[in-house]
Computed example of a mutant assay.
Amino acid sequence: MIVRIMGEGQVKLADSHFTELNKLDDELLEEMEGGDEPGFRRTLHALLDKVRELGDPLPDDALEPSELILPAPDATLAEVRAMLSDDGLIPG
């Protein structure tokens, strides 16, 4: 799956990693619903760091369709809330 981190670029991520990423996504959703700004910030960074760690970056000139778009590291709680579906940022 191709994942875009807004403002950074794209990474190719194996589907097998989504169980681990969904745990962080669930935590992020709880923190957002509770208005926990420090927790939200910490978990957003952990989620993005995990995607960077597990994914293989695509070249900057590659224009692959992104199957998943994640917010930039400096996104606000309100910006991320606008991106959410019922499942969070990561479906499943």
Rank of each mutant, 00 (worst) to 15 (best):
M1D: 15
I2S: 08
I2W: 04
V3I: 06
R4G: 12
R4M: 11
R4Q: 15
R4C: 12
M6W: 00
G7M: 03
G9D: 14
Q10G: 12
Q10Y: 13
L13E: 13
L13M: 15
L13F: 15
L13S: 14
A14F: 13
A14Y: 08
D15S: 11
S16P: 03
S16K: 04
S16Q: 11
H17Y: 08
H17E: 14
H17M: 00
F18H: 09
F18P: 05
F18R: 01
F18M: 09
T19G: 13
E20R: 02
E20H: 09
N22D: 09
N22S: 07
N22T: 08
L24I: 01
L24K: 01
D25G: 11
D25L: 02
E27Q: 07
L28Q: 04
E31W: 04
E31H: 07
E33Y: 05
E33K: 11
G35I: 10
P38A: 00
P38Y: 01
G39N: 03
F40N: 06
F40E: 05
R42K: 08
T43C: 10
L44R: 03
H45G: 12
H45N: 15
H45C: 12
A46F: 00
D49P: 09
D49L: 02
D49F: 06
V51A: 15
V51Y: 14
R52M: 14
R52H: 14
E53H: 09
L54Y: 04
G55P: 13
D56V: 05
P57H: 14
L58K: 05
D60V: 01
D60W: 05
D60C: 10
D61P: 05
L63C: 11
S66F: 02
L68Y: 07
I69P: 04
I69T: 13
I69W: 04
I69L: 03
A72V: 09
P73Q: 05
P73N: 11
P73C: 07
D74M: 13
D74W: 03
A75P: 09
T76M: 14
L77R: 01
A78I: 10
A78P: 11
A78M: 12
E79S: 12
R81V: 14
A82N: 08
A82C: 03
M83G: 09
L84D: 06
D86S: 00
D87G: 00
I90Q: 04
P91T: 02
P91C: 02
G92F: 10
